[in-house]
Each structure stands twice: as C-alpha cells, then as structure tokens.
Design a protein around this nucleic acid. Structure first.
Lengths: 158, 158
DNA sequence: TCCCCGCGCGCAAGAATCTTTCGTGATTTC
DNA sequence: GAAATCACGAAAGATTCTTGCGCGCGGGGA
C-alpha cells in the first residue's frame, strides 16, 4: 500500500466512476474513461492490488430494513494510554450496533456510527453497554434526523 | 420505497454478501446464498428497484490518494427554523471537502464528515468557509487518528 | 542519430457470466 | 377442490470477462 500513488487522469476517472457506481461493468467503465476494456480492467486490478480501492460495498437503506435509528456517539475515556485506547477500540468491534468507529483527537477520544432498530434498543445500548464500559468517561450522542449529503469518500481533482 | 419490506432469509443473505463485496458476480452470489443464478438476479433487481439497495460504491484509500486528513465537524446554528436548516444543508453540498453530512439532534445541529489533502487545507476550510458561513454558531472538530471499525451500514440478524 | 528496450494500448478469441424465456411445482385463494 | 399466483431452475443466446499477442510511443545508451 504505497503512501503516494502516481495516477494519471484515466485512473482518476476510473476511481470517480467506481465510487459512484461500484457495480458498473468493465465495458461501460472503459467506455466512460475513454480506453478499451482490457487496459481498463488491468488498471482496476492494479488499483485493487495496491490497496487504493479497498473494496466494494452495496449501500443499504437502513429505515427500509427496520433500522430506524442512526446516531453518532462521541466517547471520552478516563485514560488515554495506548493500551486503553486499543482495549476500547477492540470493544467497539464486538458491538453490532456500532457500524463504523474512529479514534479521534479533540474533545473526545472515539466517534461511533451506530445503527439500531429502534430508540429503545439504542438507549439500552448506550446506558448498559457504552456508558458502563470500563474506562468510559463521557458519552455524547447525536441522533440523526436525515442524511443531507452522501458522496463517496474522496473528492476528485477538477 | 416501502418503509417496511418483507424479506426472507435468502434476501438477507444477499444483502449481507453484497454489503461485504458489492462487485461479486451473480453466479458467485447465487452459490453463496443457495439458489440458482436467475432467481438470485431477480431478487437483486427487486432489492435495487425497491430502494433497499441504494447503490454500490468502491471504497477508496484516502491517504494513498493524498488525502491525509479525515475529520468530523459538529456544527451548531444560531437559528434552527426549517428554512435555516435547509439553507445550511444546501451549503454543505457545495463544499467538496464535506463528503457526508447529517442533520442531527442533540448538542449540535449538523455533523460533517470531511476529507482534505492536508491540515492547512482543512483549517482554512474550517475558518474561512465553515465558521464564517451565515448562521453558524459553534464549530467543533475531531480529527481522526485512525479507523477502528469499518463494517457495512446495517447489521444482520443472526 | 539510431537502435534497443520497456511500457501500455487495442484487437481477437475462448471462457465465464448475464439475462431472458419457459416449464414445473408449491402455496394460496376462492 | 380447482384455479391462480408465485418463485424456482434448466436452457440458450447475448453480453461481458479475461488472456495472449502484436503494435506504436517514449526513454536511455552506443
């Protein structure tokens, strides 16, 4: 996984297209970026192998699946030594409600992206699991009202 | 887009597999979920048409693309009337640094997921764009140190 | 200057996949 | 109990994937 990759304009186009539609066929992709299918596939493979493309994911509609609560939790710990940070990070991986988690700097130590079927489930999780976990000092929650923007992960050069 | 869908065990398996690998071929998918390819494809199409699958996306490695700063911003507004919320939401869509944005309830009004090439770019954005935007009261930022968990959006029944 | 080499593109062909059509069996409905 | 509905799976044609190979461009080195 190189820290700095040398990508040309076609590579950037490929990344933009696949970020918008990860299931696009290779012929469609090659047509959009302006080269033929074989070199296009080779470029995609190379982007995958170098780790620039980390994977592909279907985006699901949480409310339609009965997941009505999406929230973010900001966690402050009592002690921030390396071992304690790793312990808490490991703990987040065992909580199915937590979908994504980040270690952050600032007023909090962790930010958790949570999805639950209903408010009761989420509140129970916050009180009985999160807030009562070892070393947890503060828990601030922000329930999402609606998604306002939903681009891919990375912006692209003009 | 039905608010509550009736999915059987096979549909759930499909969603789980595509959430893990959105580019899996249909024959591979059908084999994993235990049915033949045609009905499997019909199920995927139905999940897409009903909006349960919102789309597909390649996950990119931001640092490898020269995006070294990933941060979250919590925004508090002075006034939270519907028009003002919509105005700010619209503004977030015009900022390329903001990749995802949520309207939230709690201590803040919006949560912004930001990606920038370097700290200077991000700080300039926060000071000159975000904090100086109309109606913005408070801006709290949390720089991410590392991703700790990265599952799909939705958890699945056992 | 010329030659050689490496790199990436594109053509072509075989393999794999996608997609539609159709027949069958199970469940539901009247 | 009969008919209708639904979803599955087999089969076949269309599309796509994937590999191998030849070509042209650009960068050293003699």
């Amino acid at each position: 996984m190189p820290l700095k990759a040398d990508l040309d304009a076609i590579d950037w186009k490929i990344l933009r297209e696949l970020q918008n539609d990860g299931r696009m066929t290779n012929v469609e992709l090659s047509s959009r970026v302006g080269i033929s299918a074989p070199p296009c596939l080779r470029r995609v493979r190379r982007l995958e192998e170098t780790g620039i493309i980390r994977g592909y994911r279907a985006l699901l509609n949480a409310p339609a699946l009965g997941m009505d609560v999406v929230a973010f939790c900001l966690i402050g710990l009592h002690h921030q030594a390396d071992a304690e940070l790793k312990t808490f990070a490991e703990r987040t991986r065992g909580w199915p409600i937590v979908r994504d988690a980040w270690m952050v700097s600032g007023e909090s130590d962790f930010l958790l992206h949570c999805v639950a079927s209903d408010l009761g489930t989420f509140q129970t999780f916050v009180i009985e699991e999160l807030a009562s976990a070892p070393n947890v000092d503060t828990v601030r929650t922000a329930l999402t009202i609606r998604r306002v923007k939903d681009e891919g992960l990375v912006a692209f050069p003009a």
